[in-house]
């Protein structure tokens, strides 16, 4: 495990902590896209099927269980918690995420890592993760004001994949020496989707102003 990978995983974990903190302390999920959260549940469930078939390390198993558990918990809060669900910005969360699921599934059938059920699902999860943030970004763009925790959540989520890019470069030269088209290109797309957000996030931070995305 290299420093980029660890930093990426910790940033990913921290983003989830920030989101759960927002939901549990403010009893509000305003500004958070339930569609994006549903996509993450699907991403983790389809990617971590290898929990049953392959063992890597205690760290690996624990992190996978945490990602599955927390994504389901966030989904549950937003969908079913008596107080939290009333703060859901339903009208603004209008992205048709089923199209993303269908598109990524077809892509995974056409270009899978390998032709088996688990490998097609793994590839599907990589493609879907790359675009899962789109409903959230659209929701942010429609929101008048973005609270700090929501802004930080999205920033950390983007930083995680950017750090993974560095991890892949590092591993390519030190360890694997193989081109890994599917995760690399998906990861590049995923990180690029945040470029606009990063720009406005850093600007608002430097100017000490509230974060706002132009429509």
């Amino acid at each position: 495990m290299n420093v980029f990978r660890l930093a990426g995983d910790m940033t990913h974990l921290l983003s989830i902590v920030v989101l759960l903190l927002k939901i549990r302390t403010t009893k509000s999920c305003a500004g958070i896209s339930l569609k994006t959260q549903e996509l993450y549940v699907l991403v983790f469930l389809t990617r971590y099927l290898d929990l049953f078939t392959r063992y890597f390390s205690v760290y690996n198993v624990l992190m996978k269980l945490i990602f599955i558990g927390t994504s389901v918990a966030i989904f549950w809060y937003m969908r079913y918690h008596k107080v939290v669900k009333q703060t859901y910005s339903k009208d603004l969360d209008s992205f048709r995420h089923y199209h993303l699921i269908l598109g990524c599934f077809l892509m995974a059938l056409l270009i899978p890592f390998d032709f088996s059920v688990t490998e097609v699902l793994w590839t599907f999860s990589i493609y879907l993760e790359a675009v899962a943030i789109l409903p959230q970004l659209v929701l942010l763009q429609k929101s008048r004001n973005i609270d700090n925790l929501t802004g930080n959540y999205v920033f950390l989520l983007g930083a995680y994949r950017a750090l993974y890019l560095l991890n892949w470069i590092y591993r390519f030269f030190t360890e694997i020496h193989k081109i890994r088209w599917i995760p690399w290109i998906s990861g590049l797309v995923q990180t690029a989707l945040y470029a606009d957000f990063f720009y406005y996030y850093i600007q608002s931070w430097r100017k000490h102003e509230e974060l706002k995305l132009p429509a």
């Binding site: 995983d9 290898d50 996978k64 694997i176």
Partner: peptide, 10 residues
């Protein structure tokens, strides 16, 4: 098929 591919990533 998986050797050399870093499926140990999350």
């Amino acid at each position: 098929a998986r050797s050399g591919d870093s499926k140990d990533e999350l």
